[in-house]
Nucleic acid binder design. Sequence first.
DNA 1: TAGGCCATCTGGTCCT
DNA 2: AGGACCAGATGGCCTA
Length: 357
Amino acid sequence: MTKPFAKTGDMTDLVNSLAWLEEEDGSSQDGDESPEMRGRHSLAAGGRSRSCTELGSEDMEEEEEEEEEDEEEVGPNGEKAPKRRGPKKKKMTKARQERFRARRIKANARERSRMHGLNDALDNLRRVMPCYSKTQKLSKIETLRLARNYIWALSEVLESGQSPESHGFVEMLCKGLSQPTSNLVAGCLQLGPSPVILNKLEDKCGGPGAGGVVAGHPLSYPSPGLPSPPYGSLEASHLLHMKGFKGPAYDNPSPNECSSGTPPYDGPLTPPLSISGNFALKQEPSPHETERNFTPHPSHHAHYLSSHHYPTSTAGGLPGGPQAHPLFQTSRYELPLDVAFDSFAPSHLVTSHVSTM
DNA sequence: TAGGCCATCTGGTCCT
DNA sequence: AGGACCAGATGGCCTA
């Protein structure tokens, strides 16, 4: 942080601050600093410089006051500058300084937890996005963009009966997204495990096989000189959604034709207004808990496999497509996927909404 | 090594 | 006075 120093630019302040810090340094910066933080700040220089500047600013504040007390500021040319208006700052006594410091520490902790809350919310949002992957997280900005597009696209589905399998749907999803994210979304929709989608795409692209789909599908968003991304996943709930969807212009013959392995949702219909209830289901445990409980869809395996390479380094793709990978046959996850995803699916909202229309 | 993304600290502002 | 929110600054990590 340079701001505080910019105030005075005096190195002696830094030295003083350092001295002050030496006394307090034992207790890191905040008493409740998380292990992560400790890790991040294990670099003494980084953490220390922050503390220094921070403390420095306080010390400087104090010194400034002392210096300015009852003195008229003198300009560079010796002329007297007008006295500073406004209420005089209170003298920074030691006690006041400590209180100030304590408040700052508390404020930092609050700010940290506030940001954690924000990030948790963002994570929850990621989980209901079409291309959720635990390992390949969308960036914050991309998550928000995709969310916006997703809402937009779903609205279109509801209002105009546009098929969620249509080009338009994917195009809406990808609007304004970065190339890699667009690729990811397109890849998800192309290579998701849902036979519905695969069949449709195969019809459109003429030719079975994921490779063909990727290569030839008009929805792919090719990076110049790079192959289309490859694998990704359509979040299972979204597949459910698509399966169950019966919009006005939806021509999917029957849900039974979709044999993705996930039965159509036939539980109690969620009223359209149960958004909160729906998301209440997703009051997922803290990230630490989800670490343990995570129940990936097969498509998540694809993501898991590809995540470390996505998006641009996946030059060759998986031979035979993600579904051919052994991991899809030997899942190490035991929870029944359907259950997990039924309770997981934000698609209930849309599905039930549509089905009651 | 540059650029993107992120977590954190910080001071300012507004509100209670 | 204190909390919430915000934006700027900074430095670390990762990837192309």
